[in-house]
Design a protein around this nucleic acid. Structure first.
Lengths: 365, 365
DNA sequence: TTGTAGGCGTTATCAA
DNA sequence: TTGATAACGCCTACAA
């Protein structure tokens, strides 16, 4: 294979019969005998189909604008040769890539990963690639990542969470692409939203405790972000139902069971008698549950524990963890669907999609 | 802001004082007043610095080739304006992007995610972006994803696992970029490897059982892939130590605790008395442990359970799960370091990095 | 050490 | 409905 003029690869010369032969010889997706194989270019497809490159481009991008027979011929050749558009060239020329950037606050989280999976399931069949970034619950990191989006020129951006910093919100709007937030219910989403009401979730928790007959209740979780919302709903529900919140235990980190263990231990140590504890997520709740058992408490006899999030671990504990559930994969799928609509140029009537929360009753309450 | 000739954005005209003004007005990272803001181009930096674009490029790419004073001036302007190279233009021209593709067999796995995080920690400070894909333990999906790499032109590829299909191995080699496999110890890695010996891990498990005085032991896990290796090491170790393997329970899915629960229940139901069970991963082991407790077995009095993988959950169970441990984040970091070396053009003496497995003793044995 | 020329593969625009 | 032309932003090769 001849070297290109500047040494970056194979020679790209005007069409000859040899090119066609080369293309025909290449089994789709297979590597040439000489090791590294050059990807097919659009011109080569054009030569084979006897049309101009732009027609091939149109056949792939806007099939309805190309005559039936030509389109069929082109698409068959594309299929047989395994041609795929060079995403960088496309992004450079069109100012938009096929990358959808997905940001999770914590890649270790089952739920967020499920949502990202669900989103990918919807978008990938349409040629979009998910690029996953982790903001690590850090505003600084979030800002950095958002800044890097300008050059990456993604087709859309999805967050498992909402953006709070006004500067970042502005920067995202300035990208001029579909932005999807999720996992909450802010008044003024940047663009699109798949959310649920964290406040409702907290209220649901309090109502469930009331229904079970518990009076002296407590909260374990963060006092910022979503935790704050769940707490405020919990407070509201508790007030309405006449429950007494005897302790609100703030934790700095909400990612590990150890945090839940420690918080519960401290809670039982400090406060008076507590009948039921609402934990702001299932991991915390699982830690709390295990710690309660380690301390010899019967669940739910001595203590009831309620989680939030519908994660795998909730199901597997014994007793099973009662939790305020959200179907993460469904959130992801809905997010993908909304994004897809926008990428196709359709305007979804409701750019905000609210999914219901449900109480998943298990043994721990 | 004037429209570009073809309507894709702002006009790009020869340098005037206005351009400089525009650049100066743009606070780094901030959006212009008119909404969508054009990213800076390399020429604009060049105008500001009074040099040619190629000099700016060199200052960023090969600082040592640019005179001290110019370099300093250029880098300061880059810093102040927040300029970042357009990755697509770069990839198109140079035939290589700044994307490092990372494939995990299961994005839900704590361990794999940790490894990817570790890898990112090393690579991101050097300007590389991780793009995460999920192969879902499916050869078909693996093949599809590998094919799409040709057009994406990543700088390198990392797998949490090894590639077994010869066609895929060839396709990866044909990319002509650093390829890193991990999490196993094949004879003939495609290129680079950060591994450990699954066989050793299995042997370690058997040796530990022997040391504890257990005789009648069992295995729960897959009989293919890594599971098969762990099993073969376990068999070997058991034979050497005179243990009797009374059951080998094959499971189809290894992703959830429920699988472990079911497998243990079936195992205790079918086989004769079993003293100790080696599970091929911690999730299975956690399920098995919970099921054993549900059935009223004392651990480790009636039954000992040993896991593999050093995942979070192992630590939090009670009793804590004894496990054959691997430091996932460390694997990721080493992977990142190897890849980085190669991307810098250095040739690592040992493209294979073997990390030790250790037995993490907790309560379950 | 710096700069000039030109092309990477695609697609927007405009003309036929 | 199709094609010719040019440009997206950067960097390789080569010249000065």
């Amino acid at each position: 294979m001849a070297a290109r003029k500047d040494g970056t690869g194979a020679a790209r010369r005007p069409p000859t019969i040899d090119d066609v032969v080369r293309v025909r010889a290449a089994d789709p997706g297979g590597a040439g005998a000489d090791g590294t194989q050059q990807p097919m270019r659009i011109v080569e497809i054009a030569w084979l189909a006897g049309v101009s490159p732009i027609t091939v481009s149109r056949a792939l991008r806007h099939p309805e604008k190309v005559a039936e027979d030509k389109r069929r011929r082109i698409l068959e050749i594309v299929e047989r040769t395994g041609y795929a558009t060079n995403p960088h060239a496309r992004a450079l020329r069109s100012g938009r890539s096929n990358i959808v950037a997905a940001f999770v606050s914590n890649i270790q989280s089952q739920q967020f990963c499920l949502a990202v999976q669900g989103c990918g399931e919807i978008l990938e069949p349409h040629g979009y690639q998910l690029m996953i970034g982790q903001t690590s619950y850090s505003y600084a990191k979030e800002t950095t990542m958002i800044r890097s989006l300008r050059e990456m020129r993604p087709a859309a951006v999805m967050f498992t969470g909402v953006i709070e910093i006004e500067e970042n919100r502005r920067a995202l709007r300035a990208l001029g692409i579909p932005i999807l937030e999720s996992w909450a219910y802010p008044r003024d989403p940047i663009d699109m939203l798949v959310g649920f009401s964290n406040i409702d979730g907290g209220r649901l928790a309090a109502e469930h405790f009331a229904e079970c007959g518990y009076r002296r209740v407590a909260y374990i979780g963060r006092r910022s972000g979503r935790g704050a919302l769940r707490l405020s709903g919990f407070r509201e529900g508790a007030r309405a139902a006449g429950l007494e919140i005897v302790a609100e235990r703030t934790v700095d980190s909400v990612g590990s069971m150890a945090d839940g263990r420690a918080a519960l231990a401290a809670l039982l140590d400090g406060a008076g008698p507590v009948e039921a504890v609402f934990c702001a997520n299932d991991i915390l709740a699982a830690g709390a549950l295990l710690e309660a058992r380690r301390l010899g408490r019967r669940l739910p006899g001595d203590l009831a524990i309620l989680g939030f999030g519908h994660s795998d671990v909730a199901e597997e504990l014994s007793p099973g963890l009662t939790t305020v559930g959200v179907d993460s994969r469904d959130i992801g799928r809905r997010a993908g669907a909304l994004i897809l609509q926008r990428l196709r140029g359709e305007t979804p009537e409701a750019p905000t999609d609210i999914v219901d929360l449900t109480l998943v009753r298990r043994g721990s309450t």
